[in-house]
């Protein structure tokens, strides 16, 4: 396989990275809201949050993408397929991230919150100074795994016609008739990206490595 073909894959991986990064970030914002809903005192909000998490974790991302891809035009939103892909990926990862965040907050030991109560912290101060920083630290490994999961899952947006890494490999495999090399090379590019992300996650973890609980 020539360097030229490989370079085309590397260039296509830019879109893979952008789509994933945007979806993971949007998903995180959405996940914070969903997590707040699930942990709130409001029963309706809790039920809605749980339903959201259950649905998007309970169905294949491929089906979600196809559904959104065909649904958006039907409700009058003619958007490029990249946007449909981002919507689908963001919703899906939001459900997973919401569960991860909830797990983080639940794992903050009660005693640490009681200590804050005894020191006179208001609920808002307890959240800002104690619960949030600890929950964030606890969830970094799981959020890193989820980011890697999304990077891999982004290959599915190739079916709705987004020319990202997998789709580029597919197109090149069809035109050059060398699927073995091209898919192996695509896999290699994914692997490199994921190793970098895993390394970033580890670095972040180390930087926040004050106290194991």
């Amino acid at each position: 396989m020539s360097w030229k073909l490989f370079w085309l894959l590397v260039e296509a991986s830019r879109l893979t990275i952008i789509l994933s990064a945007v979806s993971i970030s949007l998903g995180f914002v959405l996940a914070s809201l969903v997590c707040a809903a699930v942990m709130s005192g409001n029963r309706a909000a809790r039920a809605a949050g749980r339903l959201f998490v259950s649905f998007f974790r309970g169905t294949p991302l491929l089906v979600q993408l196809l559904l959104i891809y065909y649904l958006l035009p039907q409700i009058g939103l003619n958007v490029p397929s990249e946007v449909a892909a981002i919507v689908g990926m963001s919703l899906c990862t939001a459900a997973y991230q919401a569960e991860i965040l909830r797990g983080g907050f639940v794992s903050v030991p009660r005693g640490l919150i009681e200590a804050a109560n005894m020191c006179g912290f208001s609920p808002a101060a307890t959240f800002r100074r104690i619960r949030l920083p600890i929950a964030v630290q606890l969830t970094i490994p799981a959020l890193t795994s989820e980011a890697i999961m999304m990077l891999k899952s982004s290959s599915l947006v190739s079916v709705v016609g987004v020319i990202e890494l997998t789709r580029m490999a597919q197109d090149l495999a069809a035109s050059t008739y060398r699927p073995l090399e091209l898919y192996a090379a695509a896999g290699f590019v994914y692997l490199v990206i994921n190793i970098v992300v895993a390394g970033l996650g580890l670095g972040l973890e180390k930087r926040m490595s004050w106290g194991r609980l």
Binding site: S155, A169, N194
Partner: peptide
């Protein structure tokens, strides 16, 4: 680690379309 680091779709493509070449 190779399997865990790459998308399932790419693995399937490799096996199904690349397999015949080996």
């Amino acid at each position: 680690e190779l399997i865990r680091g790459t998308p399932f779709l790419v693995q399937i493509f490799l096996l199904y379309y690349g397999g015949p070449f080996i």
